[in-house]
Write a protein that binds this DNA or RNA. Sequence first.
DNA 1: GCGAATACGACAGCATGCTGTCATTTGTTG
DNA 2: CAACAAATGACAGCATGCTGTCGTATTCGC
Lengths: 161, 161
Amino acid sequence: MQNTNPARTPAADALSWLMVQIFQLNGALTAAGDALAKPAGQSTARWQVLACVERAPMPVAQIARTLGLARQSVQRVADLLADEQLCRYADNPQHQRAKLLVLEAAGSSALAAIQAAQRSWANALGEQLAATGTDAEHIKAASAVLGQLLALLKQEGKDDD
Amino acid sequence: MQNTNPARTPAADALSWLMVQIFQLNGALTAAGDALAKPAGQSTARWQVLACVERAPMPVAQIARTLGLARQSVQRVADLLADEQLCRYADNPQHQRAKLLVLEAAGSSALAAIQAAQRSWANALGEQLAATGTDAEHIKAASAVLGQLLALLKQEGKDDD
DNA sequence: GCGAATACGACAGCATGCTGTCATTTGTTG
DNA sequence: CAACAAATGACAGCATGCTGTCGTATTCGC
């Protein structure tokens, strides 16, 4: 217990606080996202899947990889979206079982509504941040830090695979 | 739809990306936290509650406020911790029903083990970040941005109350 | 003091995400 | 071509967090 008990480095201390903030932000952002998606009868999770297949139809496993989630989490949401006719499973010429999830008309219009709301929301939030002296450059700098952190954590996680 | 459809401002664009990163970081950090807490038979959620009552015994509702969670989420975890003798509900002279959650010996040692592991982990991660050119100052700067964002989101949420 | 507002805990129900396991399909390798 | 590994989807089970509702305790205003 001597070696694990040195005073935290300044970076480690800052990281611990960052961790708490990220947990809280996750909650706040999910709530905000749900509020944005609610008028269209959707949620943050559904929105993310819709946005993913809008870019290109793809099987569930690929959506999961794109979003950084487990296959089964996406599977559940995708089945719900298909049940509600927002999406549809289409035959995949590349794979017999891995059907492609494609956007239907209802899904497309729901997504458009959410994206319009999200645009206003993000612009307003950006302005409010700017008013406190945090401009786009500050946000990008923060994003760069989070990106490096995420890369390290993903690499760490891969050791378990 | 004219007003809601301008090109996103640079800040809004950066924010949208930040949002995605925070979702992914939440997942990665929770996984990392669970890995740290696992040797002690705990999880990220339990660890946070234990750390909270270590500072001072307090009722469930106050823990929830401190952690930024809903009362009931904490209630569930606290009851489990009490069942497993890691904590105990003690009489609260200030309130007949709102018992104080206090740390027991088992909880204290579990917490110590987790904190030791967390210290090593945070220090190592800090070093790795520094190796990529991200030092404590960069982390603090990112933290400041997240803090302002969190403050804005909390204020926004309060409008619904 | 008494009554309304507030705070707290208990219970039920739901959404989201994870893991584990299995069968089937694909693709690779000998 | 046969066998084995990897990828995929299906199903079951669990952890975490949220909301809603109810009953009780505390607090505040009159």
